[in-house]
């Protein structure tokens, strides 16, 4: 098992370094993409900043708390951006039939598929979200003790698994309907819900975003646990289970989809 893990790690580095070499041919594209992704993330900050000129807080969430939530939500979707960007073009692979190659190698198919793209522009997002988290945690007086750091990392892992799993499920729809782009874009938009406190929504939506599409676990519940520990309720304890459970579900749907896909005959 451990040996297996090491093998896959090594393989990932090999594949990724080749990919980066290839991408480095398009330096201008890389630069513009990094600028693009930083701008996309900056817009949320502009929104919060303009808002803070008119109102001091939303409920008990002051502007710096909201900034921390925003940073956490960005950080939580960064692994999706970095490591899973290949799922966006699954539709082309399925349409053109070259997806067949992922059946033929003695590797885990999901691993092999996503390892082929390492999205460099995601690094811009990574840096950006870390800066926001550090800045806002200083502002709100969040203490980075050993315990809180461990909790932060654990929550971050399960949070990022949730968005990854949802996107894998959405992409897997492609095995049945070929072009899953609309569903992917639709699910991807849900990440916007995670940037604001779930407490602003009415009961029905709150339930929906906790249990049906568990977007609340991407940022709201983890952030609440970190900065308003007195508000903690039982839901947050579900967080790691949601992450891992959803991922198992997503993986089995992927597997099922692969068994279902009939190829293009080429």
């Amino acid at each position: 098992m451990l040996k297996n893990l090491r093998f896959y790690f090594k393989l990932y580095f090999k594949i990724t370094s080749q990919y980066i070499k290839a991408r480095m041919q398009y330096r201008v594209d890389f630069l513009i993409s990094i600028i693009g992704i930083i701008f996309t993330n900056l817009i949320g900050i502009v929104f919060l900043w303009v808002l803070s000129l008119s109102i001091p807080s939303i409920g008990k969430w002051e502007i710096d708390h909201l900034l921390f939530l925003y940073g956490f939500s960005l950080l939580a979707v960064t692994p999706l951006q970095l490591f899973f960007d290949h799922i966006w073009i699954l539709r082309y692979r399925l349409q053109e039939g070259d997806f067949i190659k992922y059946y033929l190698k003695p590797l885990n198919s999901l691993f092999y598929y996503v390892s082929e793209v390492f999205d460099l522009k995601g690094l811009g997002q990574l840096g950006f979200s870390i800066v926001i988290i550090i800045y806002s945690s200083i502002k709100i007086g969040f203490e980075w003790t050993f315990l809180s750091t461990i909790i932060f990392i654990l929550l971050f892992f399960s949070a990022s698994l949730i968005m990854i799993s949802l996107m894998i499920i959405a992409a897997s729809a492609g095995f049945w309907i070929t072009n899953s782009y609309s569903i992917l874009a639709f699910i991807f938009n849900f990440k916007d819900f995670s940037k604001y406190p779930l407490s602003i929504f009415d009961g029905m939506f709150k339930f929906f975003f906790t249990f049906v599409i568990p977007i609340g676990f991407v940022a709201f519940y983890p952030t609440t646990l970190l900065i308003f520990p007195e508000d903690i309720d039982l839901t947050i304890i579900l967080s790691p289970f949601f992450g891992v459970g959803l991922f198992i579900l997503a993986y089995s749907i992927w597997k099922k989809g692969m068994n279902n896909w009939s190829g293009t005959g080429t």
Partner: peptide, 11 residues
């Protein structure tokens, strides 16, 4: 000039 569009269009 750039032969790519994602970054500049999203910006």
């Amino acid at each position: 000039y750039t032969e790519s569009i994602w970054g500049i269009s999203i910006t």
